[in-house]
Design a protein around this nucleic acid. Structure first.
Lengths: 250, 250
DNA sequence: ATATGTTTGGTTGTCCTACAACTATACAAA
DNA sequence: TTTGTATAGTTGTAGGACAACCAAACATAT
């Protein structure tokens, strides 16, 4: 066994728990933008941890642009629009509704990424993508290896755009997808939910191989749209199916 | 005066400098994925800071998914594809070439965001966007208020998509743009480089008002493409004009 | 010989105290 | 009114101490 599969709700690392707590307090409006946070001593006493733990948490919040600490004065909440990092709260944002919005973003990004990749992909890019495709078809469709190959497939297409920003964003979204898959398998081990559709991937690959920009875009859009549509089948925690009416022209 | 304009190259906060240092060491391949970092004691001694500083830095790197610390064992470098946060190194990634790639991503995202916004925008959304537009036209075109209104305009369109993920991503990119504008004005105070084109914004707004999805997409794409094209006029630091040949069909 | 329990050294996690650097405010003096 | 100064409070950094934990070597029993 390569890995011990870190327990899903591990109870460790105080600083990250504190950081998550303060972040949620801010998100809930408990502290408004511009407002001053309690001092580190007060936070330490209130939460029953040492000041070191508070400092590690505060350090992270500052790095993310969530708060702004001024020596000799205090720490202040920043406007949420001015964050300098993107990070999603894993345990909070994994309802079905939220996942569908994530897939909408994913569709936008990867559709255009596929188009760019069709125009710019090198021979090596194509080979790497093909390898991932082969690994996907080789294994059982809901096996770990197949899911991993699926993610590699999407990432390598993003890499073929020769745009590191696009690659970074797609990698990040893939990582979120991986997390939500892990949660989905944990709560509901039905394999259909994470089944990999090989045929759709083949269609994307053939378009990339042919250098057909428009075909690559359409194949990728259809693929991600289908994957997103399957989310409804899964029993998420929130029952808010309201208003997910999309407009799918183009 | 509302703000003291934080000095651009401030020499403060050791933990963030340490975090940036280690991040760059990893990015440079000095430490490979899976490899173990030096112990916190060694890092503290090597860099000449206390272990507390190291711990704050390590805490941030772990939160970003750059390293993975195991109690009793050590800290290990993770694969760059598995990062759990997006953060760009401000001082490293601000060449003209890099900015053009950022604008390519921005164009993809905001083009589709404008399309979604045209279909979904509420009356209030439209009003907020119009306010930003008015502030833009009211002031001098390279004034601070005009630039700020420009960013608000783009952010509010993203908000009108009713997709918080899209909104978060667009906010993040806007923040990067703001930083690069600040740098650009610092090194080269020519106002033309950050000039705001009101006419293009008006065209986007009118499409949103009319609910014309296709017109909104085209107007936004043209706008961002023009803004990106202006980057070449600015004297970036790196002289790598090599190979910026993009394929701009559509 | 294999399996199991134990020791040992090393690493991260947390706590504590102390002091330096810095700031806003109040107060005193010109 | 302005300017300088003292003061209390806050964040930044340092260093030591111990707890929690782990891997590997070692010892013991079956």
């Amino acid at each position: 066994m390569r890995q011990i599969s870190h327990k899903i709700g591990a109870t460790q690392h105080l600083p990250s728990k504190v950081a998550s707590f303060i972040t949620r307090e801010i998100a809930a409006g408990r502290y408004q933008p511009g407002e001053q946070l309690p001092t580190e001593h007060q936070l330490a006493e209130t939460l029953g941890v040492s000041r070191n733990v508070i400092r590690e948490a505060v350090s992270q919040l500052r790095a993310d642009g969530i708060i702004h600490a001024r020596q000799g004065v205090g720490a202040f909440v920043m406007e949420p629009e001015r964050r300098s990092a993107i990070r999603f709260d894993r345990e909070t944002l994994k309802t079905n509704d939220s996942l569908k919005r994530l897939f909408e973003l994913r569709g936008i990004l990867e559709t255009e990424a596929a188009g760019l990749a069709a125009a710019r992909r090198s021979a090596e890019d194509l080979k790497t993508i093909k390898q991932a495709l082969d690994r996907m078809s080789g294994e059982e469709r809901w096996q770990d290896g197949s899911i991993e190959a699926d993610l590699v497939f999407h990432r390598e297409i993003a890499r073929a755009t020769a745009n590191d920003y696009i690659y970074t964003f797609v990698c990040f979204i893939c990582e979120e997808i991986r997390q939500s898959i892990q949660i989905a398998r944990y709560t509901n081990p039905l394999p259909e939910l994470v089944e990999v559709n090989v045929a759709e991937h083949v269609r994307v690959y053939e378009a990339l191989e042919a250098g057909d920009v428009e075909a690559a875009r359409q194949a990728m859009r259809a693929h991600i749209w289908n994957a997103g549509a399957r989310i409804d089948a899964a029993p998420g925690d929130a029952g808010d199916t309201a208003l997910t009416k999309q407009d799918e022209r183009d």
